[in-house]
Design a protein around this nucleic acid. Structure first.
Lengths: 167, 167
DNA sequence: CAAGATTGAATGGTCAATCTTC
DNA sequence: GAAGATTGACCATTCAATCTTG
């Protein structure tokens, strides 16, 4: 049986050193926030992505990449990776597909011969704009129709703390 | 060129019928909440899953399935699907893998000959418990260390609205 | 030898059938 | 004919190399 699961005897932790000052067990409120975060993101993201794809458009990550490239000029995979929380190998293949579809253009990097540069094409700009006409209203449906303005602002404030540094 | 992208001329929308009373464009606060939701979930989930997998455990979905089965007795794929927001075909293969690893057991459903039942095994219960010893503290790190108790409760309340009905 | 980026092979997810039972 | 569930074929992600330049 078993397969991808560590043996009962050796949970693979080098040692139960108790090193970090990390929380031992999360409080009820923290667990509740965790569960809701997962559920809410799944529900909202699922609904929005379904709407966008039902209109015949590519996945939402394409939108994110196009938006970053439109705002930030040509970017290195390295920088896109940092902004969008992508894995490097993942981004590499995503850019391949987007280039094959004519939405981005890849060129060698002038000052660092290791790197490459990705730039948005005119077709890419048009695609991003057309996607937004479905994407935006879908966000309105998924989020705006469930929170008033004050709640949305407060939610944004609290969520921001989660990507920030620890207290 | 182009490939998975609808042609410029025909965005694939049957008609711009303006049918639903849906939001036309989301407000700034709503877009901010959307962006933060995506970012925060990505950051928190990524950190927690890395911790769990670094300890040699399977993906977090395994935990979710095991927990539901431990709480709810044997369940039909149908019910698991509803509780966990899984696609049906996806769940089917996940249960296959978990059964192959000896963590769940699949049996035919007595009263509905179409359905099947999934039950957690003793090894599954042990796995879930061992996972929690890493999972729980990781949630504490990712969420508890960034919000106080009141903020966590408020965040949970707001997120709950997002999986609920529209205003 | 580290950083940036890519690739092969294996795993996991997705869409569109399909099969069975209600 | 619809609900519950699975499967085949295809697409995307993942891990562990690998290759190149700083």
């Amino acid at each position: 049986m078993s397969d991808a699961v560590p043996s009962e005897a050796a949970p693979s932790e080098p040692a139960p050193s108790e090193a970090a000052p990390s929380e031992a067990a999360p409080s009820e409120a923290v667990v509740a926030a965790w569960v809701r975060l997962s559920r809410a993101q799944g529900a909202a993201f699922g609904a929005v992505e379904r709407a966008v794809r039902a209109a015949g458009f590519p996945r939402l990550e394409w939108y994110d990449v196009l938006l970053e490239l439109e705002r930030g000029g040509p970017l290195r995979p390295r920088d896109l990776q940092a902004r969008l929380l992508f894995a490097q190998y993942n981004l590499s293949r995503l850019l391949d597909r987007m280039a094959a579809a004519g939405m981005v253009e890849r060129t060698p990097c002038p000052d660092d011969q290791r790197g490459s540069l990705a730039a948005i094409t005119p077709a890419g700009r048009r695609l991003r704009r057309r996607m937004w006409r479905v994407y935006g209203p879908a966000i309105g449906e998924a989020v705006g129709a469930r929170l008033d303005e004050g709640e949305a602002a407060e939610l944004a404030r609290l969520l921001d703390k989660l990507s920030g540094p620890a207290r």
